[in-house]
Amino acid sequence: MSKLALVAGQGGLPHRLVAALPDQIATVVHLDGFAPEGVTSTAFRVEHLGSLIARLVAEGVSDVCFAGAIARPALDPAALDAATLPLVPRMMQALQAADDAALRTVLSFFEEAGLRVVGAHELLPDLLTVPEVGTPSDRARADIDRAAAVHAALAPLDVGQGCVVAAGQVLAVEAMPGTDWMLASLTHFHGPKGGVLFKAAKAGQDRRVDMATIGPGTVTAAAAAGLSGIAVRQSDVLVLDPEGVSDALTRTGLFLTAVAP
């Protein structure tokens, strides 16, 4: 029987997994400074990553799931332990690389130790169920098509997982600060009324560790930005709280639709 470790970050995903899979998750750890909300876990430093991996292997862990958001940590050379020293050259390259390349490097450390990396949606497939509410207007559908085209054009550049389009105009593109920051920035912008938030995976994205997410807060932020709805690509986006999302959509009057891959 497989033994699972959860490397938890911030946001609602770690709590959702722990609540749904209490008997499957053997241990929960988090990067120092990025403790998950509502989840009991043990902190580790990035300078001790090699020791963490060795400990998981020694404890008989076979699978590892990364869930939740973290920022890139600073590396303190003076704090490195012996088990992590061999990883340092690749760690330094990863810290300077684009998001996808950096994540692939981190995953390789675990996989080379014989640990299998599994996605949150593989453990809990219901995370991919989109609670569709409302019907996009013809104008909104045109904005969705435009947003999908913009996303496809930018995806190979590893920029972000979302964008906002209104009346055919690109109002914002998600970058390092994330979706919430992008939507908040639009509250100060007086552009076309309405608009659509579009979210999907980037080209070449490793969906085991870097899936886009939406929750009730996403709906509230989209409404505050004056948008008319949200579109996600089916099987590309995790929904953290389907009931909360549905309630928020009903309350705000926004639509949520899933488009085919």
Results as ranks from 00 to 15, higher is better:
G162L: 09
I70P: 06
H30L: 04
D100K: 05
A147R: 08
T218L: 05
T218C: 05
T220Y: 02
L128T: 11
A58G: 09
S2P: 15
G9W: 09
A83Q: 14
Q24Y: 07
D32R: 14
V106F: 11
V28D: 00
R72V: 10
A101D: 08
E174M: 15
C65V: 15
D81A: 05
A175D: 15
V159E: 13
A142E: 10
A67K: 09
P242K: 07
A43T: 08
R72C: 01
A223P: 09
L17A: 07
A94K: 06
G119E: 04
G12R: 14
H48G: 08
A78W: 09
Q93C: 01
S62R: 14
Q169P: 10
V106G: 05
L52C: 10
H188V: 12
A221S: 15
E47I: 02
F110K: 02
G119D: 05
A26V: 04
L154R: 09
H190I: 12
D143F: 10
V29L: 04
A101Q: 11
D126I: 07
L6T: 06
Q169M: 15
H121K: 08
A140K: 00
T40V: 04
A58T: 13
V173T: 15
K193V: 07
T27Q: 10
P77K: 03
A54Q: 13
A260P: 03
F198R: 06
L183S: 13
R45M: 04
A200E: 11
K193I: 06
A260G: 04
V219D: 09
H30A: 04
V130D: 03
L123G: 08
P242R: 10
R141N: 00
S108Y: 02
D138G: 00
A69C: 00
E59Y: 03
H188K: 13
L85R: 15
D180Y: 15
V209Y: 08
R251N: 05
V117W: 01
K202R: 15
A94G: 02
V64Y: 12
F255H: 00
P216V: 04
A201S: 15
L127T: 04
A19F: 01
A74N: 08
T250G: 06
A142V: 03
S108D: 09
F34Q: 04
G119T: 08
V28E: 00
A201G: 12
L21W: 04
V219E: 11
T257N: 00
T252S: 15
D247R: 10
T252N: 06
D143W: 07
L238H: 03
A120T: 06
L31A: 06
L128E: 09
L171V: 13
A200Y: 08
I214L: 13
P131C: 01
G9F: 09
V209R: 14
L87D: 06
L128A: 11
V232L: 02
K199N: 12
E122A: 14
G68L: 10
V88G: 05
A153M: 10
L123E: 10
G162E: 13
T27M: 02
M91F: 03
L238C: 05
V118M: 01
R104P: 01
M1C: 04
A258V: 01
M1Q: 08
V219I: 14
G11Q: 11
A71P: 01
G68H: 11
E112K: 11
L31V: 08
L6Q: 06
V61R: 05
F34V: 01
Q234D: 01
V18K: 14
A175I: 13
E174G: 12
L157C: 03
P136D: 02
V165Q: 11
A166Q: 12
C163P: 10
G244C: 01
I53P: 12
F34M: 04
S235K: 07
